[in-house]
Nucleic acid binder design. Structure first.
Length: 256
DNA sequence: ATGGCGGCTCGCAGCCGA
């Protein structure tokens, strides 16, 4: 099965790209972030006509997550249970026996912003939730925009970012703690010769100059990682007119 | 050194993203 993730930066604007991508890549599951749509405006008709079921949790202007799947998502959980959050950033569902968690980790804005401690507290809450969920799901995948570049290799110019947002030690430590739960960054199963990015700045010809970051990740439980045969980032949608600044990423897993 | 793009809104300027 193919499990994918894409921060679309407005599903309203990007719906044609998403529908084209579903047709071309035929993922079994596609996790979306930054839909920026209230649930009443979610394009469920178009998604269903494309052959997908969908569950979604959105809000106006900011955030919003969705899971599209060829078979009906089951046991849907909205947000992080027991952790109040007005921002719609997490959605979980079981699809074909795999527990899928779609995450849009807060950006944090800057390390001296109020949004930075919110990001770290949010990551702590996510860690607790994932620890609990892993107890009951051997086949487990956490896909999304983590807003963390795990190593300097995941940054086009580490000097520019310094100890700033997306790369700071506390954020990277939080990411490492997610791995310590027993999750594997599927990207690392298929080490690449050249640096690989999933996001490029709209400004200053960021994509053309390959000024990117690897901040979209697919973490897999050990059982699911054993079934994983490929990891890819598809840069093609980033080349289209009015692209998202993120590219879709996916993994293929045997069976399911 | 700064901002540079793009999407959003009880919009026409300002916030936010990364």
């Amino acid at each position: 099965m193919r499990l994918a993730s894409w921060n679309v930066n407005s599903l309203k604007v990007r719906l044609p790209h998403v529908l084209d991508w579903l047709a071309e890549q035929a993922p079994d599951v596609l996790c979306l972030q930054e839909t920026k749509l209230e649930d009443g405006n979610f394009p469920i008709k178009e998604i269903e006509e494309a052959g997908y079921h969908a569950v979604y949790s959105g809000q106006k202007t900011y955030n919003g997550v969705a899971i599209l799947a060829r078979t009906p998502p089951q046991d849907v959980v909205y947000g992080i249970p027991g952790w109040e959050d007005l921002q719609q950033r997490v959605l979980s569902a079981t699809i074909d026996g795999v527990r899928v968690v779609c995450v849009y980790v807060p950006n944090g804005q800057s390390v001296d912003s109020d949004k930075y401690p919110y990001k770290l507290a949010w990551l702590q809450a996510l860690e607790s939730y994932l620890r609990d969920s892993l107890q009951s799901h051997a086949q487990f995948a956490v896909l999304g925009d983590y807003n963390i570049a795990p190593t300097n290799r995941d940054v086009y110019d580490a000097a520019i970012f310094g100890e700033g947002i997306l790369v700071s030690e506390p954020e990277r430590a939080a990411f490492t703690r997610l791995l310590a739960l027993g999750l594997i960054d599927s990207f690392t199963l298929f080490e690449q010769a050249e640096p690989v990015y999933t996001w490029w700045d709209y400004r200053m010809g960021g994509f053309r100059r390959n000024h990117g970051l690897r901040i979209d990740h697919i973490l897999l439980s050990a059982s699911l990682a054993q079934r994983c045969t490929d990891w890819q980032v598809d840069k093609a949608p980033r080349k289209l007119e009015r692209p998202s600044d993120h590219a879709p990423v996916w993994v293929d897993c045997i069976g399911g």
